[in-house]
Nucleic acid binder design. Structure first.
Lengths: 207, 207
DNA sequence: ATTATATTGTTGCAATTGCAACAAATTTAG
DNA sequence: CTAAATTTGTTGCAATTGCAACAATATAAT
């Protein structure tokens, strides 16, 4: 959903002004968090792609989430409160930053403000759903079950037996929080047992 | 946060009427999902406690979340869309059910409606934070690191080295998605190595 | 086009973990 | 207060997994 759904361009400008929103543009592979001032904020991606990545003391990278156009992120909604996280652009990316307190404190009964909050609500609810899906996967105890759950979720969502990986297998292993080589091993087994077919980034479920 | 924060009792009643909200009361250990009609809804817990539990085909129980007074849940926000989930009361519990479409479709510029949506936004953002925390834990690869991450999060949140488990060790194992006996084994090791002390449900961090 | 970089595939091995099957302790219900 | 139910502690063992170390591909950069 577009955060400005049901808001005319005219009102959108007015809204952004009232919210004192800031627009930023970044190139590919820039680390953007550092450039945003140190307050609670909500960011909206107008265009491009970012990854929220955590690197722990062992150097293990985890993709917390990958966000594109119309997705939102921020200190209040992406565990960005602590500094183990980095936000990196994966493309030329344009974002809007809104101060969270500013957003909440406004007592504006204008219909467009109201609509905007509703839109944010809907977007965040969707992100909660994504997180629930991920938790669902992560609570599976074996690599096989994690993979199958992941396949099931994507397949159900797209109503198709074909799954096009939105990222690399390396990233998938990160997302599932499993060792990449062990994952490859299991994928091979699943292929040999006739459960799946893999062609590049397309995985076909045969069951 | 209370979903009716900053809304007078008078307006609250009016709001609930406009939203066609339904109030329900359940006893302890009732399964409540079945009793709610089959539409997208947002539930608000006025009093008591519920657990959202998933049981997979192997019979593995996972506590998706445990919710108390002022927490919200629903098909749009708790992956309750499919029927592998059960919501069970852990106490005498009183809830309000609001139809999601009804909530969103209203074009009401009344200040109390606006405030209510903002409150929901804030509550859901908090629940996103909780989920991020859990994901953070679940992405750790060893039992030890899951435990330590869990301790760290709780300890940081409460700014205390003492952690009072809000549930049983059995439930903790479910929450961390690890085998309970293996968890007990690791807790023992952590004790022996002098990292923690355990007394009933209180865990003290010694580092 | 060629080089550099990143991703994927593979495998042996050690370490971790889940599982099963109990006993002991604690909590709940009647 | 007593019995029943649930939770906690323990341990051996087999299975799964992470890790390390490479080779082979594929992708990106100059």
């Amino acid at each position: 959903m577009n955060p400005f759904y049901n808001i005319s361009d005219e009102y959108k400008l007015e809204l952004l002004k009232v919210l004192e929103a800031q627009t930023y543009e970044f190139n590919k592979n820039e680390e953007i968090l550092k450039k945003i001032k140190n307050r609670n904020f909500i960011g909206i991606i107008l265009d491009g792609m970012i990854q929220i990545i955590k690197t722990d003391y062992n150097g293990n990278r985890t993709i917390i989430e990958e966000l594109i156009e119309n997705d939102i992120f921020g200190t209040k909604i992406s565990s960005l409160s602590n500094n183990e996280y980095t936000i990196t652009t994966k493309d030329k990316t344009k974002i809007i930053i809104i101060d969270y307190e500013q957003l909440i404190k406004i007592n504006n009964t204008n219909i467009y403000y109201n609509q905007f909050i509703k839109n944010l609500l809907e977007i965040i609810i969707n992100s909660v759903n994504d997180k629930n899906d991920r938790i669902e996967i992560l609570t599976k105890k074996t690599i096989r079950n994690k993979l199958l759950e992941y396949f099931k979720i994507i397949s159900t969502k797209n109503n198709s037996k074909n799954i096009y990986l939105p990222f690399t297998f390396t990233d998938l292993a990160d997302y599932l929080a499993i060792d990449r080589s062990a994952m490859t091993r299991e994928l091979k087994t699943l292929k040999e047992e006739g459960f799946i077919e893999i062609k590049n980034k397309r995985i076909t479920l045969l069951y």
